[in-house]
Design a protein around this nucleic acid. Structure first.
Lengths: 143, 143
DNA sequence: CCATAATCGTTTGTATGCATACGACCGGGC
DNA sequence: GCCCGGTCGTATGCATACAAACGATTATGG
C-alpha cells in the first residue's frame, strides 16, 4: 500500500467491458451448440441479413452486419466456398461485388431460423420478460 | 410471402447477440483510444488481474480473466516479450508456469488504471447512474 | 505402489476483428 | 476531357478466441 491509497481499487470483475465479454462468450457457446457448429454467429449474421435485404454489395452487407471490410470479405469467402453465397460483378458499378444467397444458402437460412431464435431465447433465459425489454433498451443506448 | 408465413420474421438487429456485439465493439474502440493503443482489453485484463491477485499460474490467470488456455498463453507470450510480465517454473508443481508482474509491468498498470476507469465511464456515459446499476445487474445474470 | 484420472501447458487449425496500405473505379467540378 | 476526392474490394499483419490433440506431470484410488 502506498502512502496515497487509490480511492477505489480497480476490480476487473466489476468493469462493464469484462462483464460484456463474458456474456458474449456464453451467448456464442449457446449459439454454436444450437446451430450444429457449422454456422458461426458472424456467418449467420451475414446469411440472415442477406435473406432480409436480398442481394447487395459486399461492403454494404458489412455495414448492415457491423463488420469491418476485411472481416466481411473473409466471411463471404468462406460462405461462398461452401456454396451458401455467390458473388458477381455489379454491371452498373465496376467497384462493387454483389453478394447473393444461393438456393442452398436460402435453404440453410430457413432451416436455421428456429435455432437462431432459440439462441436468443436461451441467452435471455435467466431474465423475465420485462427484464429482457429493459436490458435491450439499455444496450441499445450503448451501441 | 409463402402460403404459411413465419409468425415472426427474424430481424437481425433485434437479436440480443447482435446488439451485444455492437456494444462490445464500441467499448473496445473507446478502450483502445484511452489506453494509447498499446494495451488491448484482453492484455489489460491479464495485467490488472495479476496486479490484483499477485503471481499465479498461467491457466489460473486464464480462468480469472475468462480466457481460453490457448488465448491466455498468447497474451502472456506477448506481454512477456514486452517485459511487462515474467514466467517461471513452479518449484512445487512441474506442470505449472507461474506468471509474475515485472516492475515495468506494475508501473504500466499504475499508469493505466485511470484510463481503464475512464473506459468504463465512457462506455456507460449514455446511461444514468440507476440505469448503469440496472444494466450491470441484468448482465451479471447472463454471464 | 501403481494404474488411472485429472491438470497443465503447448501446438495447430479455423474464424473473427481491426488497422493500414494499395489499386481500381466512380462521381463532380473545372 | 480530366483531375480528385470518395468509395470499393483486396491483401497483409497483429491480436483475440476456441476446439482438438498431444506430452508431461500430478493426484487419487485401490
Amino acid at each position: 500500500m502506498s502512502r496515497r491509497a487509490s480511492r477505489r481499487p480497480y476490480v476487473l470483475d466489476e468493469q462493464i467491458g469484462f462483464i460484456l465479454r463474458q456474456v458474449v462468450q456464453r451467448h456464442v457457446a449457446l449459439f454454436d451448440g444450437l446451430m450444429g457448429g457449422d454456422l458461426t454467429p458472424t456467418q449467420w449474421a451475414a446469411l440472415s441479413k442477406l435473406a432480409e435485404v436480398g442481394t447487395c454489395s459486399q461492403n454494404q452487407l458489412g455495414r448492415l452486419t457491423a463488420m469491418d471490410v476485411a472481416t466481411i470479405k473473409g466471411v463471404i469467402d468462406r460462405l461462398s466456398a461452401r456454396g451458401l453465397t455467390k458473388t458477381s460483378a455489379d454491371p452498373g458499378d465496376g467497384r462493387r461485388l454483389l453478394v447473393t444467397l444461393t438456393p442452398a444458402g436460402r435453404e440453410r437460412v430457413d432451416q436455421a431460423v428456429s435455432g437462431a431464435f432459440q439462441a436468443t431465447e436461451d441467452t435471455l433465459a435467466p431474465l423475465t420478460a420485462p427484464e429482457r425489454q429493459t436490458l435491450k433498451a439499455l444496450l441499445m443506448k450503448l451501441r
